[in-house]
């Protein structure tokens, strides 16, 4: 509708253009193990977070501290072959890539990059620092990324960890503005990622 709404909706675009009226938030208590993304994934945050009632895809979940355009944890667990990472809102004109269980870990960053490029309609996206790690005891890939959206001078940074177990994708990403927020909350996101149990 305009730049003002655009600012708040920029990150939300990922998910759905028409959800705020029904949206709601629930408190996630610090130190309490909690199941996420309607799956077997359990995480334990080090501080209180807010969980959004909106789920971009069935087995997903969004948390924030200050609002999803300022800090966003996106959990996806148990994504199967043929499913998309975000809501396939414009599937006729611009379908999102579908997950393929035969992908190997090195293809996960590319899967996320192409999903975000299409979902946000941005060409300004770079992936960096791809490295092996673990997620809940499984082999995983960690990578960083940054992008900007048309019409906004704000650079956004992110970090994600993804794992493929029995042909299903489990992934947690953390995205925030490069200015101030990304660095401030990175350790909190890393702690959540390190706390994963299945």
């Amino acid at each position: 509708m305009n730049k003002f709404i655009g600012a708040s909706a920029a990150a939300a675009l990922f998910f759905s253009a028409a959800t705020p009226a029904l949206a709601g938030w629930k408190l996630i208590d610090n130190g309490e193990p909690v199941k996420v993304a309607k799956s077997a994934m359990v995480v334990t945050p080090g501080e209180d977070w807010n969980r959004w009632s909106v789920r971009p895809v069935k087995k997903s979940e969004i948390w924030t501290l200050d609002g999803i355009n300022l800090n966003e944890m996106y959990f996806v667990s148990g994504l199967k072959k043929g499913e998309t990472l975000y809501k396939d809102a414009n599937k006729k004109a611009q379908p999102l890539p579908k997950f393929d269980g035969s992908m190997d870990l090195t293809e996960v960053p590319e899967f996320m990059e192409s999903s975000i490029r299409l979902a946000l309609n941005t060409s300004a996206f770079t992936t960096t620092n791809v490295a092996p790690t673990t997620l809940g005891g499984h082999q995983a890939v960690r990578f960083e990324y940054e992008y900007s959206i048309d019409g906004s001078p704000l650079l956004r940074k992110g970090m994600a960890v993804g794992s493929i177990v029995n042909g299903e994708l489990h992934m947690i990403s953390y995205t925030a503005p490069a200015t101030y927020f990304y660095d401030r909350d990175l350790a909190k996101a890393e702690r959540i990622m390190a706390s994963v149990r299945f």
């Binding site: 730049k3 920029a10 938030w25 924030t64 609002g67 355009n69 300022l70 906004s152 704000l154």
Partner: peptide, 24 residues
């Protein structure tokens, strides 16, 4: 900082003005 202020304003607008409250 204009860009950051715009993003923060979006959050304040959603979570305070519009009442889509964050528990934290």
């Amino acid at each position: 900082y204009r860009g950051l202020f715009e993003a923060v304003s979006g959050s304040v607008f959603q979570h305070v003005t519009q009442g889509d409250s964050l528990d934290t």
